[in-house]
Amino acid sequence: MNENTETFELEALQKRDRAVFAQVLDQNSDRIYRLGLKMLGNVQDAEDILQETFIKAFNNIDQFEGRSKISTWLYRIAVNESLMLLRKRKGNTIQLDAPLETDEGDLIPRQIVDWCCLPEKELMNTETRDHIQEAVKTLSDANRAAFILRDVEGLSTQETAEALDISESAVKVRLMRARMQLREELTAFFAGKMIKETL
């Protein structure tokens, strides 16, 4: 999933060379589509985000100075577009740099069940995949964005911070909350399966 080979000429890109634009599309469209799908949960919205991201990127290519990877810059646009769409739907404001909630209760493990011993076919079948997708949807928008970029797309903490325009320490807190919440969700899911098997 790490498609981090960025082979294009920056100068040609900034001169709006169509062949280089096409190359950037080729190298980045899968990852931006995946991000949209995970952030918004359906293929139509993911396609809208994909198109909007590249339209904005190419219209504002002079703002890309090559200090970060172009994929990080594209992720940043895509995350902002996704949040704008979610904001429109929810009718409220989502701010990635909003103060972090102070409740530490969500970091305390509540369920201690060892489900790692389940067979691989149980751990990764269609039902489990569907459950994971639903579980990711339950994360807050800000925590979900950090989790997708860092753990699913494999960006470094620094790249995730750049893409979300927040500090690295804020990324780490959001990531921890997301990971722990997903662990609780999956533990409840697999514990239920283990109980069924013993009946």
């Binding site: 999933m1 995970k38 751990l123």
Partner: peptide, 13 residues
Amino acid sequence: TLKKTIELCKNAD
């Protein structure tokens, strides 16, 4: 289970 959670989420996608 936390390590496995991360691995499953990554692989699911």
